[in-house]
């Protein structure tokens, strides 16, 4: 299994960043960067990461099951993550999450038929003072109101088709 030249470059740099013989350390970052490119954690990917980091596939599987950002099935092209944790909750995070679900007709971790959008209710994402907050893929959006969210999603929908 090979990745894009950029990612391959990142990985070889990554593997060198740990002390000699400690390549296992690259397992978590390698998985999440690879997921961004592959779309999800496939068993082929697990085997590949195991090979590159010198561990057994089982040791990689243990890691995959543990971290909540690693998904075994692909999320949408735009993965909308709404924080409903305490600071967001207090200023409408839960309502915002419900609104998003209705808007996209999805439940937690569900993906639209066209694979464009997916939703996830997530934990505190470190935007508490600018709540309610969401992340679309890795992009933060602060002080999000239902209206602002609609605009965001509509803009993305346009981009999609």
């Amino acid at each position: 299994m090979t990745f894009s030249p950029e990612l391959e470059a990142r990985f070889s740099k990554m593997l060198e960043s740990y002390p000699p013989g400690r390549q296992r350390s690259a397992v978590v970052p390698m998985l999440i960067y690879a997921q961004d490119e592959v779309g999800s954690i496939t068993s082929e990917l697990v085997a590949e990461v195991a090979k590159r980091c010198g561990v057994t596939p089982l040791q990689v599987e243990e890691v995959v099951g543990y971290y909540s950002m690693l998904h075994r099935k692909p999320m949408g092209k735009y993965h909308v993550q709404v924080c409903t944790n305490i600071s967001c909750l207090l200023v409408g995070g839960e309502e915002l999450y419900e609104h998003t679900c209705k808007k996209l007709g999805l439940g937690n971790k569900e993906v639209t038929a066209d694979g464009q959008f997916s939703i996830e209710e997530v934990e505190c994402m470190g935007a508490c003072s600018w709540a309610p907050a969401i992340q679309i893929n890795y992009d933060f959006h602060h002080h999000v109101t239902p209206e602002k969210l609609d605009q965001l999603l509509d803009a993305l929908k346009k981009k999609a088709n």
Binding site: E61, E62, G65
Partner: peptide
């Protein structure tokens, strides 16, 4: 042998085979 591991996290943690 190391044929058994731990899958998932929290209350849904379970033992997984290799």
């Amino acid at each position: 042998v190391g044929a058994l591991g731990i899958g998932n996290r929290g209350v849904i943690s379970e033992i997984i085979p290799n």
